[in-house]
Design a protein around this nucleic acid. Structure first.
Lengths: 246, 246
DNA sequence: AATTGCGGTTGACATGGATCAAGCGAACGC
DNA sequence: GCGTTCGCTTGATCCATGTCAACCGCAATT
């Protein structure tokens, strides 16, 4: 039986899972690299892994040796205190990097958990360091990514430190919307991958408060919400809510 | 009149302000470098600057081209929202780096303000990148420092998101104490460089709440506080306070 | 020594969000 | 098809912290 050329094409595509033909490359680590550089990065990012919804990509305390790029799916990271309290420190989507916190101590300091079936690319860190000693652009972009993470965290500190419940939730929705947009999805309609409890943990609120804020936004015509399905009806309304001094 | 050899020695010491004879090098960027590498770093870290108490090292929005190591003194960083609210995002002391947030957008995203007369070393960032392409150890340590900043920020998020007022303040004091210790100062007695308002901003509390928490700690015998002068009388008491679930 | 101002403390009261509790609907296993 | 579970919503009440206000004390200035 002769090979089906269509199938062959597909199987090649499956094998070639490298950065050079990943449509997220402009959002991810390869940003700004030329073709030759991209191929060198490909060699490095060979391992891809599926993570099922609910499974850990890594756990706090595990040895660190790679960072992870999200190829598809959705993650949360969280930190646990000895006394049982925990806090979601972030939600990550396709094209974003996970594991940067582990560089510091060579152990992961948080848990990364898939909120839907996901696929990640593992990037061995010492090899990334080697390569970025050779490819200036890669080095610089990696530094930018780390720095962006710091800036993002400052934004969350701002949110937790100075905003009230509805402002926090408005900021959260606008941030999600903006990130979905950057990935080519609708800015006005999306499914939340996380529960009210996880949103609350991230925003420093109880789940009931999150739920009430959603209801209030709906009453006021800013959004339509049905469980995890969100439609943003009035972006400017949300923006106004976000920095309306108490 | 003949040169006084003692003076000559001093003047040499003043000129030689490089990393290789800085006693903070084990806390700062040069960590782990050998002598030869240290000297190469010296070339890079040539500019030193004094910043008077209250002055800005940099402001949000300014172009970024260098990171700064604190040689002596004490800084705060803060972010301003359009509506006037601001949040202190960190306090930095000798040996710590400032300006990492600027790498991401090539503009600083926060203000860095001296809380006492300070001295900083400016490290031109593109030259740091060049050098760290050549010195593996420097590259790796720099990555660790950035990552540590991310971990630190997660700690603050934890604090702001899940802790109550007294827990936050206890955590804050213990953190300061630990950092002073690392610099060879007393772990039990120090002067706060910042006002109650600045502490409050950092911890997401109002200054009155900070003041009351201090008073309460004193009543309970955990600390002795007189204005900015703090003595920690019972470290374990504070630690217990810190993770005592409500 | 008196004046001024800023940072800090303390008290009285207000309130946003937490807590407790009940009920509901969608998803899932049997 | 039916119960069970889980996530969500909503209501009633409580409490930690914010808000407003008065006052104190140290330090700088004159």
């Amino acid at each position: 039986m002769p090979q089906n050329p269509a199938n062959q094409e597909i199987s090649i595509a499956v094998i070639k899972t490298a950065c050079s033909n990943c449509n997220l490359r402009e959002l991810c680590l390869p940003y700004g690299l030329n073709l030759e550089e991209l191929e060198r990065l490909d060699d490095l990012v060979s391992t891809r892994r599926r993570i099922k919804r609910g499974d850990h990509l890594y756990r706090a305390g595990e040895a660190f040796d790679a960072i992870y790029a999200i190829r598809s799916g959705f993650f949360k990271t969280d930190v646990l205190l000895e006394d049982g309290r925990d806090q979601v420190t972030g939600f990550q989507m396709a094209g974003e990097l996970l594991g940067l916190d582990g560089i510091s101590t060579e152990h992961h300091t948080c848990n990364a958990i898939a909120l839907e079936d996901s696929e990640i690319c593992a990037i061995p860190f010492s090899r990334l360091e080697s390569l970025s000693r050779e490819i200036h652009t890669l080095q610089h972009h990696f530094h930018k990514v780390m720095s962006r993470e710091i800036v993002r965290d400052h934004g969350v500190m701002m949110l937790l430190g100075t905003m009230r419940a509805e402002e926090r939730l408005a900021a959260f929705l606008l941030n999600l919307s903006q990130r979905f947009t950057a990935r080519g999805f609708s800015h006005a309609e999306f499914y939340l991958r996380m529960t009210r409890d996880e949103i609350g943990s991230y925003l420093g609120l109880k789940l009931e408060t999150v739920s009430r804020a959603f209801s209030r936004f709906q009453e006021e015509g800013h959004i339509a919400v049905q469980q995890k399905h969100i439609r943003i009806l009035n972006v400017n309304g949300l923006k106004a809510l976000m920095n309306h001094r108490s």
